[in-house]
Design a protein around this nucleic acid. Structure first.
Length: 318
DNA sequence: AAGATGCTCAACCGCTGATGG
DNA sequence: GCCATCAGCGGTTGAGCATCT
């Protein structure tokens, strides 16, 4: 059966989002929480398809997104995870809560791939993925292994490079059987960190309409405010353009205690989030991940599927 | 200064898996 | 169990900007 594309309908707008549309979408989500994307266009009156709304939110408007200026640590982590997981960007993104899969994918394709190619052929070859014939049991096992490997990779990435190689033969945790269900932690586990929708209390979104409109101030209306230079990333939103460099709402603790809705638009809330130094590494999320990792360290010694750990030594050229 | 080329990244497209009737 | 619908993912495209010639 051939399903017509969801955006085939007449009157569905495509192309770059305008600040007004962003505002409408954010207002709606602030009120109802993300999710039920199908209803968004009709309820908001946006002439966009649901998919487009979801994408706009997850890749761009969602609080806590950091743009541009990938740190060395993030780079290494991405490379490492990519080598382990392949091009499963959502899974990779779930380990970088401030980054979107799209962002990581773009960064990989435009920076890292080239870097690796020029610096060392085959430093990180993506493993073959998702054999079409794998049974469900195999698939689930592989998922768990992915999670384990990613966890391990993350731990390694967070470890000073000098120590890395000594850990190459650590075991893999086979324990986590539980939750793991998903190809994409992004869709399940990331929920916690990625502002996953309604599951978590829709609550604390930092982006009040006022904030949004402030964010959108200075948006020239052109498609891009070019990244780089002093201006922040090319986000029209310019939360970061208002600030220095790549910081935007990233440290907003939308998941936690109520910065957001509580954050009265009046209180110049945005400035609270503007003060983060552009180069600041994602300390918060990473440290959270770190503690998760190291708390669970004992599991690393339960080797179960050692063959899957034959990851080539990561000797990245940068 | 102007055109050509390269680079970046937001957005789109098509597919797959999950879910509900 | 089947089918329709929806959400999410990864690959690709193309507009706009930067840099080069």
């Amino acid at each position: 059966m051939v399903r017509p594309p969801c955006c085939d309908k007449e009157g569905v707008k495509k192309g770059p989002w305008t600040p007004e549309e962003d505002l409408v979408l954010v207002s709606y989500i602030q009120e109802h929480g993300p999710g039920n994307w199908r209803a968004v266009p009709t309820r908001t009156g946006l002439m966009r398809c649901s998919k487009s709304c979801r994408l706009r939110w997850t890749n761009y408007l969602r609080p806590g997104i950091k743009r541009g200026n990938f740190t060395d640590q993030e780079e290494k982590l991405i490379v490492h995870l990519q080598a382990l997981l392949g091009n499963r960007w959502a899974a990779i993104a779930s380990y970088l809560p401030e980054r979107t899969d799209n962002d990581i994918k773009n960064y990989w394709n435009t920076h890292l791939k080239r870097k690796l190619q020029s610096g060392g052929e085959g430093a990180a070859k993506p493993p073959a993925h998702r054999p079409a014939s794998s049974s469900k049991g195999q698939w689930e096992r592989r998922l768990q292994t992915d999670i384990d490997m990613a966890r391990r990779a993350l731990r390694e990435a967070l470890t000073p490079l000098g120590d890395l190689k000594t850990q190459q033969h650590d075991g893999v945790d086979a324990a986590g059987a539980g939750t793991g269900g998903g190809d994409s932690p992004a869709s399940s586990s990331s929920g916690a960190s990625q502002c996953s929708p309604s599951a978590a209390a829709p609550g604390p979104y930092v982006l009040t309409t006022e904030n949004i409109s402030r964010m959108l101030d200075g948006w020239a209306g052109g498609r891009k405010v070019r990244r780089g230079g002093s201006a922040g990333p090319g986000t029209p939103g310019g939360a970061e353009s208002a600030s220095t460099g790549s910081s935007d709402a990233s440290e907003v603790s939308y998941g936690g205690a109520a910065v957001a809705s509580a954050a009265p638009a009046t209180a110049g809330t945005l400035s609270e989030y503007e003060t983060k130094p552009a180069v600041a590494a994602p300390q918060m999320p990473l440290s959270a991940i770190e503690s998760w990792l190291f708390d669970d360290d004992s599991h690393f010694h339960q080797v179960q599927n050692a063959s899957l750990l034959d990851v080539p030594t990561m000797d990245y050229p940068f």
